[in-house]
């Protein structure tokens, strides 16, 4: 990995982390079953991932680094699992089931929204 690649990853992860913390602290919304601010972060990252996939990012080194640096630090899988674990601990199994189905469906909706926005325009 060269110096330029490290700089892109560091810049991307810094921006991703700060944006995630900003959204986590400022957009406390509850929509549907239990969509929290961390889910909003994951929906937004799915949307951006859709855009990257439409640009065929696997053939572009800079976009791969953006994916590894920015999107990797912006989106968070452990917080999503922690949300589910919290419901599991409270024995709210039905709510847990609906929450994860809801997050997957909405994430894919945003993913394809980003993907088709680039493909068609």
């Amino acid at each position: 990995m060269d110096f330029g690649s490290i700089c892109i990853i560091l810049f991307g992860s810094t921006f991703g982390l700060i944006l995630r913390i900003f959204i986590q602290n400022n957009f406390k919304k509850k929509i549907g079953f239990d969509i929290q601010n961390i889910s909003l972060v994951n929906f937004l990252s799915s949307f951006l991932l859709g855009i990257l996939v439409a640009f065929n990012f696997m053939n572009n080194t800079k976009l791969i680094l953006f994916y590894g640096g920015f999107l990797g630090s912006f989106s968070t899988f452990s917080s999503f699992i922690y949300q589910l674990f919290f419901l599991f601990q409270q024995k709210k199994f039905l709510r847990l089931f609906f929450h994860y189905i809801e997050v997957i469906i909405i994430s894919f909706f945003f993913f394809y929204l980003g993907y088709f926005l680039i493909k068609f325009f």
């Binding site: 992860s13 991703g16 982390l17 995630r20 994951n42 990252s45 799915s46 951006l48 991932l49 996939v53 994916y67 999107l71 990797g72 630090s73 912006f74 989106s75 968070t76 899988f77 452990s78 917080s79 999503f80 699992i81 994430s107 894919f108 993913f111």
Partner: peptide, 12 residues
Amino acid sequence: FSCFTSFSGFIY
């Protein structure tokens, strides 16, 4: 942990 795990990687 939030930077270590990646939801976008899971979706991809």
